[in-house]
C-alpha cells in the first residue's frame, strides 16, 4: 500500500493530467447540452497543456530568465538551474488557439439557439427529424 502512494504522489501531475483529459472527453461525448460539450473541450485542451508544462519542470530549478544578465555576461549559464522554456512557448500558442476555438464554437451555439430555441442536442435532432 505505501508503494502505491509513492507511485501516485511521485508523478501526481501526470495522474491529474490523465484524470482531466478523461473528464473532458466524457463531457464531450456523454453530455447533452452544447455549452457543456464546449466546457469539456476546453478542459481537454488545458489537460494537454498541463502535460506539456509538466515535461518542462525540473527539481530545484528557477523560472527561465537568466540571472546575472547585465554587466556579468562572462558568467556561465547552467541550463540545469532553469526550467525548460521550449514547452512554455509551444503552449502559449495552444492557449491562444483554444480561446479562438471557444469563440467560434460559442458563436455557432448562439446561431443554433436562434434557429431551434434550445441548447439540448437531442431536441435539436428531434426538430431536424420533423422537418
Amino acid at each position: 500500500m505505501p508503494d502505491l502512494v509513492v507511485i501516485i504522489t511521485a508523478k501526481l501531475n501526470y495522474w491529474v493530467y490523465i484524470v482531466l483529459m478523461m473528464v473532458g472527453l466524457y463531457a464531450m461525448i456523454a453530455k447533452n447540452n452544447l455549452v457543456k460539450k464546449v466546457v469539456g473541450m476546453n478542459i481537454l485542451q488545458t489537460a494537454i497543456i498541463l502535460f506539456f508544462i509538466s515535461i518542462g519542470t525540473k527539481h530545484n530549478a528557477t523560472i527561465p530568465i537568466i540571472q546575472h544578465a547585465h554587466g556579468l555576461e562572462t558568467h556561465a549559464v547552467q541550463a540545469v538551474n532553469y526550467a525548460n522554456p521550449l514547452p512554455h512557448v509551444l503552449m502559449l500558442t495552444a492557449i491562444v488557439v483554444a480561446v479562438a476555438t471557444l469563440g467560434v464554437a460559442l458563436a455557432l451555439i448562439i446561431r443554433l439557439h436562434r434557429q431551434y430555441h434550445t441548447l439540448e442536442e437531442d431536441e435539436i435532432l428531434a426538430q431536424l427529424e420533423e422537418d
Binding site: V35, A61, M91
Partner: peptide, 29 residues
C-alpha cells in the same frame, strides 16, 4: 511550476476572456 509566461497568459486569456465569452453566450441563449 515555473511557467510564468504561460501563467499570466492563462490568467488574462483563459480566466478572463473565456469566462466573459461563456457568460455572454449564456445570457444570449
Amino acid at each position: 511550476m515555473g511557467a510564468v509566461d504561460v501563467a499570466f497568459t492563462e490568467a488574462s486569456v483563459g480566466a478572463g476572456i473565456s469566462t466573459v465569452l461563456f457568460v455572454a453566450a449564456v445570457f444570449r441563449t
